[in-house]
């Protein structure tokens, strides 16, 4: 049984948001438009947070892609009254859309604010509906959703490995965001396998986890090392 995890090297992140676009395409995320976004209803499973350091003109942007941290001790899970979110055996923080009744307690209790609620039903105008991913269900209004680590890709890789009579190899699974990152800032894999790329990188001295002091045990590990020197 794998323990899926991700490493994001912030020193490599350029803030291009290719991961955000890839996630939209892969996971059938709707485009909600300017007006709804202004109300704080952006429909992103991954967002690139931008913070400014320094004073103009000696200023630099810092980027941090934030997605569901797939916590081992996820605060969102126990508060769900219907087990719509729970911990699956591979350490993923699973979300069962059909079971969700929309109390939004999980979203409140997420310290990373990465859960996304369906405020309305979504429609894709023709021919945009043709590009919807058949492996991912469309969510209706009133449901909570969030990053799944592209669980459909994990399933596909496992089925392929089973067909070929082998175990999943490192690199078989690549979530859409990881695949699309032009600077290879993101790496995905099995944290239980000490030789996987993700494990090797996670052992870096630059590693930290977001809001680690809360004891949520996130599965997303960030790398950040270079102190900024004024150019």
């Amino acid at each position: 049984m794998a323990k899926w995890g991700m490493v994001i090297d912030l020193d490599r992140c350029t803030g291009c948001e290719a991961c955000v676009i890839a996630c939209h395409a892969e996971n059938n995320l709707p485009i909600v438009g300017e007006e709804e976004s202004a109300k704080g209803r952006q429909h992103n499973w991954i967002r690139v947070e931008r913070y400014w350091e320094g004073e103009y003109p000696h200023i630099r942007a810092r980027f941090i892609p934030v997605l569901c941290q797939q916590c081992d001790h996820a605060p969102c899970e126990p508060v769900c009254p219907v087990y719509a979110t729970y911990h699956n055996p591979e350490g993923l923080n699973a979300q069962v859309y059909n079971r969700c009744i929309g109390t939004r307690f999980c979203a409140n209790n997420c310290p990373y604010t990465v859960r996304v609620f369906n405020w309305f039903d979504h429609h894709w105008e023709k021919p945009l509906d043709e590009q919807l991913n058949p492996d991912v269900s469309i969510r209706t209004r009133g449901m909570m959703e969030k990053c799944t680590f592209c669980i459909q890709r994990i399933h596909r890789a496992r089925h392929q490995a089973e067909d070929e009579g082998r175990d999943i190899r490192d690199g078989d699974v690549q979530p859409a965001c990881v695949q699309s990152c032009p600077t290879e800032a993101m790496v995905f894999g099995d944290l239980d396998d000490p030789d996987s790329r993700v494990s090797q990188r996670a052992r870096s001295r630059r590693a930290f986890r977001l809001l680690e002091e809360l004891g949520t045990e996130p599965s997303v590990i960030y790398l950040k090392g270079d102190e900024w020197v004024e150019p």
């Binding site: 126990p78 087990y83 729970y86 911990h87």
Partner: peptide, 16 residues
């Protein structure tokens, strides 16, 4: 019966 772990709490949590 559900047997689902949530939030790192034991399945039977008497506190809760």
């Amino acid at each position: 019966l559900m047997g689902l772990a949530s939030g790192g709490q034991p399945i039977v949590s008497l506190w809760a």
